[in-house]
């Protein structure tokens, strides 16, 4: 009886691990979607209202959720504090603290390197580029999402079964 319960627990644990990995894939896609929406909002804020960055970041925070909202809120707060030399420095600091994927961090850091420094056209081009790159990542991730989620789930269950058979 105990043996059966142990095997069931191993099986569930392994399946759970696979499931959580699949969930991480899903979450990273949600994050990319939210970042993309934030970039679209930033583009509008800059092109139609020329909103200064601290206010624009605040608007992005209010228009987002979860980790993305927290990130832009932190950006707005640090910009308002006026302690750092440039947006790039503030962006780097907050990206380090964020839970974003390395790809998303790279895209945002490249955006941050020029943000706030040049004329409006350059700003809009930089935001458009970030949008484009995020869209590419999202398309890639979407294409792989179903397969990866299925793989992680199957792998989890199979690994659990394998351990169960070995332990029997």
């Amino acid at each position: 009886m105990l043996k059966t319960m142990g095997i069931l627990m191993v099986l569930l644990g392994a399946a759970g691990t696979g499931g959580s990995m699949a969930l991480a894939v899903y979450r990273s896609n949600v994050l990319l979607r939210q970042l993309l929406a934030a970039m679209e909002l930033l583009h509008s804020e800059l092109s139609f209202r020329r909103t200064p960055l601290p206010e624009a970041m605040d608007a992005l925070a209010h228009g987002s959720q979860g980790a993305v909202a927290a990130f832009f809120q932190a950006m707005a707060r640090d910009l308002a504090l006026r302690q750092e030399r440039s947006v790039a420095v503030i962006m780097r600091k907050n990206l380090m603290r964020s839970s974003f994927t390395p790809q998303a961090r790279r895209i945002l850091q490249q955006l941050g390197n020029g943000l706030g420094q040049y004329d409006l056209d350059s700003q809009l081009r930089a935001v458009s580029l970030a949008e484009k790159r995020l869209q590419e990542r999202l398309d890639e991730a979407r294409a792989q999402q179903a397969g990866r989620i299925r793989s992680y789930c199957t792998l989890g269950v199979c690994a659990g079964l394998a351990i169960a058979i070995l332990a029997w």
Partner: peptide, 17 residues
Amino acid sequence: LEHLVNLASSYSTYAVE
């Protein structure tokens, strides 16, 4: 100088182009 200009423009030179 960069820091000063960034602060003076609220890190947004495009807004004071």
